[in-house]
Amino acid sequence: MRYHTPTTFAEAAGIAAAAQGVTRFLAGGTDVLVQMRAGMVLPDDLIDLKKIDGVDRIDPTPEGGWRIGVAVPGIALGAHEALRADWPGVVEGMELVGSTQIQGRATLVGNLCNGSPAADSVPGLVAAGAMAEITGPDGGRVVPVADIPAGPGRTTLQPGEVISALLLPPRGTAGGDAYLRFIPRTEMDIAVVGCAVNLRCDGDTVTEASVVLGAVAPTVVSVPAASAAIIGTALDDTALGTLAEAASAACRPIDDKRGTIAFRTEVAGVLAKRAARIAHARAKGENA
């Protein structure tokens, strides 16, 4: 295995584009090293992105959003008060990934590029409308994070392409987001179901909403019907009931070692309700 430490994303993309065998990018490494250890992935070229300037930074964008470097670990994300104030759901999604130790290394981009339908940080990013800045051998492009996952273990990134940053939009006023997941234990598990809700309010009334589910389909799924169920409401019980039904109806899960189809479908609705309540409270400036 060749270990590369490029100092620019263009150089990283160039190495990846020229590589013949199995290639992996290394940011936090908490997925790649596990796969290497299990013998599932034996890279010929491993490209460490951490020597690239700025990858460990969280910067405000001119528009009022945030630009998050690809090597920012969960622990740094969680410690960034201003980012957390804007996007608590995104931050808590990342913070749910693994243990304290994992938080010292794991990154949003790694969680996204691992391609797991159960990735905890991805529903929150999609619900927030986050964008991914991509550097490729032929230049750059910016795409919605929602367009990156392609199925279990797969992304839409082309050979040689590397995500060079994540972009969160401006929070704006009266907005709130939240992410909840269900796991059998209290920590250390992969989500059996995950749900992010991002919404904006006018007073008590929800004016915009995005509901995104994880671990219930081959990729994270946005559920427009669930969003519609709460827009125009003050999150009364009827609206929450409709939200839960819409969330459950959008599930296309599998039975596996982590949960059953029936369980995932049922609990998706439960989490949608609970996450919506938290996001609603946050949007109204209540402590939640």
Partner: peptide, 9 residues
């Protein structure tokens, strides 16, 4: 990860 022994929390 999936052979779930109890954790402290």
């Amino acid at each position: 990860l999936d052979y779930r022994v109890p954790v402290a929390s």
